[in-house]
Structures are given as structure tokens and as C-alpha cells.
Design a protein around this nucleic acid. Structure first.
Length: 273
DNA sequence: ATTTTCTCCTGCATGC
DNA sequence: TGCATGCAGGAGAAAA
């Protein structure tokens, strides 16, 4: 269940296998994803050449001459490039078959993912237009100053704040918990009651956590796998997520779990204030 | 008093 | 049974 590192790992895996290739057809076994898979893709995609695969937040953008496919993996989605004649497994909902005999296959048991199409600039699509900055971009849009200014007079918990894609993209529950641990900030602290200096540390912690997770090929807790079907191994590096009752890797006190907004928060009371 | 912004909750579908 | 890597949409509250 992909956060930014898993989506980026997927992008890097599929891009060299898709770029420059021509689409033969699309096979939709189950059109009911988060939104219906557009039926017009059956007419649009054949013979379209794939020009590039990019990423905005957790969205993957597949560029063709006629427009962009917008893919989201939701909670349980994964993509692989495999021979097109491979027998589909349960929850293998969509194939984009290439003329070279391979196909891009989407598997998504929970069907919270999406496949959409736009003929316009994809960053202007309704779902992408109001997204926050890319945390790993080198353009100075994401830093402590940005988080500090965005958080003034706000009352919600900082864990929820950094998980909000309109604040910053790509940070889901695992990396939110991990980044807050690295920054020494209690996930339940109100956003408006965190200093500028601590936001500098948090922005850096988010960047470091995401970068290291990409280096590790993502985090595989249940079913994430890259384009070749291999798992990531960042889960071996997790300091707090999923470690309720275990010893803090820094101070040895017990890692706590509390549930907020239907999602678990993991943290160390001694290290995070 | 009305409009805008903010926060929080729900629902989606399946598996462990 | 409870819980799960996401997120749009909407209700209601708070601010402007």
C-alpha cells in the first residue's frame, strides 16, 4: 500500500519497460475501481506510443501523444510488467497489453486504486490541481518555513497534517510516524504549537525517511512488490511503525500505539515531545 | 449574516 | 473481531 517510496519504486521499475513501446489493447476484467475505468480507453489506447512515466505525489502519469493515463494504487494496488499471456490471478483487474508481447498488469484486491484519462495537462486535473509540494523536489517549495507558515493557527494533530496531500504529497501513515520519530515530535501535538526550528527538523526528517525508503525499494508489510514482483526491505529499518510494545531503538523505552482517526499512531513517549 | 476555511468522519472492498 | 500502506466528499464548526 503504496506511499511515495513504493510508487516511485514502481515507476522506476516499469518506466524502462514501457517507454517507447506501443500499446496493442487494454483488457479490463473489473472496471469497478474507485471510479469506473473509462470505457473509451478501448478506442483511445490501441497504437498509442508510451512516451514517458512520471509521478506526482502518489499518482503515476503515463504519457501518450493523445493524453495521459493517471494511475493511483490506493491501499492495495501493484503494477507489474509481465508476458501478456500470463494467466491472470484473482484481483488482476486491468492489463495494458503492448505490441512487444508484454503487458502492464494492475492488481488491486481492495479496489481503492484508479485508472483515469485526461487529454489536458494532467497537473490541472481535478485530483492533482490542489496537491501540496513534492517533498523530494529540489525547487525549494518544501521546507521547514513552508510547514511552519502553513501550520499557524491550525489545531489538528501534526501526524494528520503531514499525511494531508494538500499539505505535502506522498506521506502516508508509515512514513508520517517514522518521520515524526526522527524529528523527535509527538505525533499528537497540535500543528500550531510547533516551533519553526522543529519544522525545519521535520521537513528534513520527511525527506530523509522517504529517500532512504526509495533506496531500500520501499516498505513491504503485506503485499507491496515492485515491477518485477520483488518486495522492498525498508520495513527492516522502521523505528516505530508496527513496533507497539517493543523497545525504542534510541532510548529503550516501550513504543506506544494509540488509534486516532481510525489509524494507528506509533511513537516513543520519551523521544518525542 | 453570509461566505470561506478548517477539522473530522464516512465509505469504499478484501484479507489477515 | 479489529485492523489495514488512501483519499474524496460532505457535515458541521470555526473563522473571516
Amino acid at each position: 500500500m503504496p506511499e511515495l517510496p513504493e510508487v516511485e519504486t514502481t515507476r522506476r521499475g516499469i518506466a524502462p519497460l514501457l517507454e517507447g513501446k506501443r500499446v496493442k489493447k487494454i483488457i479490463v476484467r473489473q472496471p469497478k475501481l474507485r471510479w469506473p475505468v473509462p470505457r473509451k480507453l478501448a478506442q483511445i489506447l490501441p497504437n498509442q506510443q508510451i512516451q514517458s512515466i512520471s509521478r506526482r505525489g502518489k499518482y503515476l502519469l503515463i504519457k501518450t501523444k493523445k493524453g495521459h493515463l493517471i494511475l493511483h494504487l490506493g491501499m492495495s494496488g501493484s503494477l507489474r510488467v509481465i508476458p501478456a499471456d500470463t494467466t491472470p490471478a484473482p484481483h488482476d483487474h486491468v492489463d495494458i497489453v503492448l505490441e512487444d508481447g508484454q503487458c502492464l498488469r494492475l492488481r488491486d484486491p481492495r479496489r481503492f486504486g484508479a485508472i483515469l484519462w485526461t487529454e489536458n495537462n494532467p497537473t490541472e486535473h481535478k485530483l492533482l490541481a490542489s496537491l501540496g509540494p513534492e517533498p523530494l523536489a529540489d525547487n525549494g517549495t518544501f521546507n521547514g518555513e513552508y510547514l511552519y507558515k502553513k501550520s499557524r493557527k491550525r489545531t489538528r494533530q501534526v501526524r494528520d497534517f503531514i499525511m494531508d496531500s494538500h499539505v505535502v504529497v506522498g506521506v502516508g501513515n508509515i512514513y508520517a510516524n517514522e518521520a515524526l520519530f526522527r524529528a523527535g515530535i509527538n505525533p499528537r501535538r497540535a500543528t500550531g504549537r510547533i516551533s519553526r526550528a522543529r519544522y525545519d527538523r521535520l521537513a528534513a526528517a520527511i525527506r530523509e525517511t522517504l529517500s532512504e525508503a526509495i533506496q531500500a525499494g520501499g516498505t513491504t508489510l503485506r503485499d507491496f512488490s515492485n515491477a518485477k514482483g520483488d518486495p522492498g526491505y525498508f520495513q527492516q529499518t522502521l523505528n516505530v511503525y508496527g513496533r507497539e510494545g517493543e523497545a525504542c531503538t534510541v532510548c529503550g523505552s516501550t513504543v506506544r500505539r494509540v488509534v486516532h482517526g481510525n489509524r494507528s499512531i506509533f511513537f516513543c513517549r520519551r523521544c518525542q515531545k
